[in-house]
Nucleic acid binder design. Structure first.
Lengths: 230, 230
DNA sequence: TCTTAATGTAACAAAAACATCATAAAACAA
DNA sequence: TTGTTTTATGATGTTTTTGTTACATTAAGA
């Protein structure tokens, strides 16, 4: 599991400190000093997390976050914002825009790393661009295609994401709420029951070769993607 | 998973609305109208989240938050503050004091519930997810599966919870009331004898390989999960 | 042995959880 | 713009689960 963190911070000493702490802990780091530079780095393969200085010259930190959260593919990348003490305004706007957490400068590396861990744990490892295959059901994230025994399957974007998530997290029950968080994303207000419908559509889409059995209902708990019989 | 939410709000209609929405979603609720009343409710077992009206008479909402965040034990309870539109001052002070998020009145229940979800997930550390195994009987909390010598077993949610509890607390007698507290949860009114029925169902479910002997009746006391012969 | 309290069991009705469908709104493409 | 696809939701139908009751069985002491 690659764990790549993009550090967007214009002050070199702080950036260095962050990079040092991160690499110490085994993360790969990317660095950007400006808004433009950051955008250059946010391409596939996407980083797994972005540490974003809110105080970029021209307030472009907020700008960047907003932009990322609007794009379907970058929306999932968790963002931890770095704010100066007292810049509470920023925190508010940050949470409004969809940042996942914030850390106030000056911060201890320990605290920061703890928050990174927490945020990462609950986010999808989007890094895997590899083809996933289970019992003849193939999903290729790169070409954005699903095939069952070489037959192409048709499904909507949400079903694709749902299947992608399931296939990369098999043998594990997810409650509807967890699925909403992981597939729809945080800060989205959708009914629990909506998950049912998409599960239904996904099952239908992959049912031609009997793959719908892979998606199992776990009563009272949620859904599970499993190749074992229930 | 206990999900108890304390609602601190002096206006009855809003409090009612909140409580209704929360219970609709399966949360247990506690209510408080004033600062003092709130303090009374914040005792063990601590609520898992506090919805705090910032506009309590006398500004005591802020007071309360500050106090909670200063105490070692209550500090970790996440707080979502309810602010009136435009009261940016409050939001700022709220975050300064340590609130975890805020919602602006008037708010949609949907948004509120989504934020509750997000905040709870942030704070709840994943509880024991280890597989438990006793004499070939395996329970995997992650995939939510029970197998006996590799054969999958079928049981209802309550039986699963019951078995989970037993397996993580073996060699110890539990009275029916204790089982109700631990498995069904507190403040649930259910007959004692109902436990018998679920014990019966659980035994039946795990009996294929003789594991029903693990659940032993202790006359006059309750039940015990034990790998030793009785 | 008999009595009695405690526990086991099956059946049933009510509630809860889930599946499915139709529809309207939203997003998207032509 | 118009037409098409996708999405979210409420309504409704279906299945599973749950709690309770009534009766059967068991264990322990008198």
């Amino acid at each position: 599991m690659s764990r790549r963190v993009l550090v967007v911070e214009d002050e070199l000493p702080i950036r260095d400190m962050l990079v040092f702490a991160l690499e110490q802990k085994g993360y790969y780091t990317l660095e950007a000093e400006t808004y433009t530079e950051a955008l250059d780095k946010i391409v596939e393969p996407y980083p797994d997390l972005i540490l974003l200085d809110w105080m970029l010259p021209g307030g472009s930190g907020i700008q960047l976050a907003k932009q990322l959260k609007q794009n379907e593919y970058t929306r999932q990348i968790p963002i931890i914002m770095l704010t100066a003490r007292g810049e509470e305004e920023d925190k508010i706007r940050g949470l409004e825009v969809g940042a996942d957490d914030y850390v106030t400068k000056p911060f201890s590396p320990k605290e920061l790393l703890a928050r990174i861990r927490a945020v990462m744990r609950r986010s999808t490892p989007t890094s895997s661009e590899d083809m996933i295959q289970v019992q003849g059901l193939k999903l290729d994230p790169v070409s954005h295609r699903v095939t069952a025994n070489e037959d192409g399957l048709d499904m909507g974007p949400t079903e694709f994401k749902l299947l992608h998530f399931f296939m990369s997290h098999p043998e594990r029950v997810y409650s509807r709420e967890q699925l909403l968080d992981h597939v729809w994303g945080t800060n989205v207000y959708v009914e629990d029951r909506t998950v049912d419908v998409h599960i239904r559509r996904l099952r239908k889409a992959i049912s031609t070769h009997g793959h719908d059995k892979l998606i199992q209902t776990v009563r009272g708990a949620g859904y599970r993607f499993s190749s074992k019989v229930s």
